[in-house]
Nucleic acid binder design. Sequence first.
DNA 1: TTGAAAGCGCTAACAG
DNA 2: CTGTTAGCGCTTTCAA
Lengths: 333, 333
Amino acid sequence: MSTIKDIARETGLGLATISSYLNGGNVRPQNKILIQEAIEKLDYQRNDIARSLKTAKTNTIGVIIPQIDDAYFSKVVATISSSLYEHAYSMLVVDFGLDIKREKQAVEFLCSKQVSGIIDMPSNLTTRHLDRAMNQKVPIVLFDRAMPGKDLPVVKSDNFLAIDLAVDHLVRNGHRHIGFISGNQKIETAREREAAYYKALAKRGIKKKTSYVHRCDYVQQDSAAESAHKIIESNPEITALIASNMITMMGALQAFNEMDLRIPGEMSFVGFDDVRFAKAYNPQLTIIEQPIETIARQSVEILLREIEHKEKQEDLIKIYEPRLVEGKSVRKL
Amino acid sequence: MSTIKDIARETGLGLATISSYLNGGNVRPQNKILIQEAIEKLDYQRNDIARSLKTAKTNTIGVIIPQIDDAYFSKVVATISSSLYEHAYSMLVVDFGLDIKREKQAVEFLCSKQVSGIIDMPSNLTTRHLDRAMNQKVPIVLFDRAMPGKDLPVVKSDNFLAIDLAVDHLVRNGHRHIGFISGNQKIETAREREAAYYKALAKRGIKKKTSYVHRCDYVQQDSAAESAHKIIESNPEITALIASNMITMMGALQAFNEMDLRIPGEMSFVGFDDVRFAKAYNPQLTIIEQPIETIARQSVEILLREIEHKEKQEDLIKIYEPRLVEGKSVRKL
DNA sequence: TTGAAAGCGCTAACAG
DNA sequence: CTGTTAGCGCTTTCAA
C-alpha cells in the first residue's frame, strides 16, 4: 500500500504538493502530470482514515434502525443511502432489533466511529440513548419520531391524516364497525396512529369500542396476525379492518388466510405502505402510502445542512402528507 | 471531546497506562479506579479513527449490494449486520443500483475507507471491479456468485436444485406447459436458474419452448410483470408459471391481477424466497425458499476467519440447499 | 507554487 | 506495572 510519501519520493516533490494536488489545489501543470503518473504507477489510493483523523471529519452518517429486514425500513435505508451517495457521504448502519440497550450502544458505537451525524428511528420514549451524541455535538435527525423539548429536528409523516384517510374511506363506503391493529405504545408511530383512529371515529360520530383495537408488537408478522384473529373473533360484527403499518398489514392478511376470510366480500381492508405489494395482491389492496422517499431525502438534507453549515435549526419539524391509494379491498356496504 | 491525554493529565498517569487500561491490560487496581473516575468525569470516549490509523484495522466490513430495497437483499443485509454485530464488527453498506460503474466505485470507496473486508454481490460477469481490493489484499467473499479461476470464496445456494424442485413439483401435479420468468443474464443467479429450468425439463422428457421463457431486468417489478404478460399471452396453453426470484414473483402476481387470472384455478404458480409474503398471500403460495440466513451468516464467518487468522482458503465454495414450501398455488391437473 | 515541520489521538515498543 | 517516545498517513500553517 503506497502513501503520499511514496509518491513524493517518486516525483521528487514535497508532501504538501501532493496533498494539494489530491485536493484540487494549485499545482504546476507539469507537476500534475508527474504526480498523476506516479499515482498510477504506484497504484496509490488515499487513506481516508488518516485524512479523517487530521480533518476531524469522516463524512459518514450513522443510521440507527429497528430492523432493516422490513419493507418500510429497507426502503427508508435505501433512499437515505442513495441520497447520501449523491452528497459523497457514506452510511454506517446499525440495527438494534428494538432492544433499548442496543439502541444506546449503537449511539455510543457510532460516536466512537466519529460519524459526522446520526439519523435515528427511536423505538422508545426518551432520548436518553442519544445523550452521548448530544454531548459530543454530533448532529442528529429524528425519523418518524418527535422528542418534545429536546430541540432535535424531526422528519415524519402525518399519522393523524394517514388514519383519518383510512377511516374516512371506510365510513364513506358505509362501514361503522371498524377494527384497528395497533402496536407497542412505546413507538410513537403506533401511539399516534391509535389516537388518530379514536379521533377519526369521534369526528364522525362513531362510538369507539376498545375491543376493536388490539396492540401487537409492531414488528413480527405473527404477532400482528394474532391481533387480527383476536379482534375479528371477539367482534364478529366487524366489517372492516385497518392495519396501521406494513407489518400489521402482512399479519392481517395472513390471519385472513388462516380464517379463510375473503376480501372484500367478508371483510374490507385498508393496509399500509407497500405499494408494490398492494399491486401484487389479489384483490389489489387499498392502502395508505407514506411519502417514504421524500421523508428519507429530507432527513438527509436537514442533517447535511446542519453538518456543513453548522446552522442549527431550532424546533424544526417537517411533517409530510400520506395519501390513500385505492385498490379493491374495500366493499361498499 | 476529551482524549487520553486529558485523562492522563487528570490522573497523573502516563499515556500507556491509560491505553493499557482501555485495552484490558494489566493496571494496578487503585489506578483502574482513578482512570475510570476520570473517564466518567471527562466523559471520555475512544476515538476509533485514531485507533484504526495506528493499528491499521477498522473492524468494518463493506457490503456491496445491488439494492437494499428488495425483500431478498434486505434480509441478507439484516442477517449480515446482526452477525457482524456479534463479532464486534460494523458494516458500511453501499448499494449501486446495478450500475457497473458504481459497483467499481463502491469497491474503491470502501478501500479508501480501509475496510477490513468486503462482501460483494456482483451484478456482472467479471471481477474487474474488485481489482483494487484484490491488489490491496482486502479479503473478499462473493455472495450468490462464483468467479471461476479467481480464487475468491463463494457462498451461494444451489440454483439448479431450486428450479428442479419447482419443476418437479409442477410436473408431479401434471403440468407440462410451464412458463419461466428469467432475468438479465449478466446476473449469475438468473443465468443458472434459466439453465436449470431447461435442464429440469429435459430430464423429464419435456420439450423446451423458448417462448415459454422471458427475461426481465430482474430488478423491477413492472419489468417482471411485463415478462409474465408476454409469456402467458403468447402461449395460452401454459398451465403453470415459475418465478425465479423475489421480484419476478411480485411481478408475476401483479400481472395475474392485471389479467384477472385466478391462482391456482386458471394458472398454477411457484414463487421465490419470501415466506412471510407467501403466507400472507391468498391463496398461500408455493415457493422455493433459500436458506438466506445460513448463507449470510456463513459469508460473515468465512470473511472474518480470513481476516483474523489470515487463513486464505483455497477454492472455497459453499452451496446451500433451498427447499420447496408448499402452499396452495399449484393445482393438480 | 512548493517544502519543511507540526500534529490529529492513538498504540506499541522499550526502558525502567 | 508504568512512563517515554516514535510514528500510523494525512493536512495545514508557515516560509521560502
